[in-house]
Design a protein around this nucleic acid. Structure first.
Lengths: 192, 192
DNA sequence: CGTCTATTTGAATGTACTCAAAAGCGGTGG
DNA sequence: CCACCGCTTTTGAGTACATTCAAATAGACG
């Protein structure tokens, strides 16, 4: 399982065998069942999480009790509450498995130590965060400039594989609309 | 002017004198006048830009011709079209000065070389992008979970200094609403 | 002082939400 | 293997939040 992470890092950084060994030693594996939480708002996030297999969502709950999905994570991506993790403050996000998933967890002191001692490891995270900024900016642009229907159309083009895996109501929430309204949009689109 | 950048990097990384010198050599200074553009959609972004002084905005123009502000940049922050810059593809963003501004520019090959050769420099960018992801996620949460009025209220609490510097219509666009509606909200808020 | 742009105001409209209820679907136990 | 239960999706009516368009007012700058 840890090999998936090593392979992923190796796509961006060249690591020596010794470095790979150091990295291996810092993670531990965990399998979580569908619907289980790895983080809830209010507690301090102890782990940052690489998804070796499966699918999770990060969401917030607003004052009215409505959930809003911030992000979906699938195999070969990271998920966590960065703020809570790096500053060790209480989390604002909930993170829940949408499928039974295999995770690799690391705590903040080990992650910081690896980034300090292995240049390729920090390089890898620089790239990950760089992509993160780019894709969040793109999503922001779409949120600001497109209608709900256009955002849904983009979503199904960009993430066709997620349509099968993720309940519609969660996609609606990710797009910033209600499940009822998404249902209506789908009807409208297919009748075209 | 370059000293402001060096000071900024030094808040996150310790640099040797030799490294500082290398960094200095890779940037060049530029002053741009209010309303001038440093990037327009369609062209390839040649420079990533550190703002030593002043204020700029990054925006897109949608199919109807409406502008949407993605981000404001002030002194001691970076602005650019990351996608276009790193992949050398044509830009989707326009970047324009809201005030006469002092900039420090670097091209992609020099930036990559500095990140490869100076660990502290890549560390600095890892931190910058990490903050970038955090703040964009927070903004996304607000976009998804708050009404326009709440978003405006948050904005004036978080960026009181920007209210003085940036025309209201640009703030409206940043918040994802029309200038007319923001004007109405302001009236409503002050009458409370 | 005049011109240009930004902000305000208001009426009509549209997009998306709320609430309630029905229909569909998937998993589990008998 | 089927029946039932719970959750998801659909449907529809009424409503609210935000937009559009047009015009008036206010402010900034040369």
């Amino acid at each position: 399982m840890i090999n998936k992470l090593i392979a992923h890092i190796s796509r961006f950084s060249n690591l020596t065998d010794k470095e790979i060994q150091e990295i291996r030693n810092c993670f531990h594996e965990k399998v979580i069942q569908k619907k289980e939480f790895i983080l809830k708002a209010g507690v301090v996030s102890t782990y940052e999480c690489f998804i070796a297999d499966g699918c999770l969502r990060a969401f917030v709950i607003d004052e009215k009790g409505t959930e809003h999905n911030i992000r979906f994570g699938i195999e070969n991506s990271w998920i966590g509450d960065l703020d809570s993790f790096f500053k060790q403050t209480s989390a604002t996000y909930y993170i829940q498995a949408l499928e039974t998933s295999s995770l690799l967890l690391i705590d903040v002191s080990k992650l910081n130590r690896l980034m300090d001692t292995i240049q390729g490891f920090e390089h890898y995270f620089r790239i990950m965060f760089q992509y993160g900024v780019m894709s969040l900016q793109l999503r922001m642009v779409q949120e600001l400039s497109l209608t709900a229907e256009q955002r849904y159309t983009h979503f199904i083009k960009k993430y066709p594989h997620l349509l099968q895996r993720i309940p519609q109501k969660h996609i609606a929430s990710y797009l910033g609309i209600t499940p009822e309204f998404l249902s209506m949009l789908r009807k409208k689109i297919t009748s075209k």
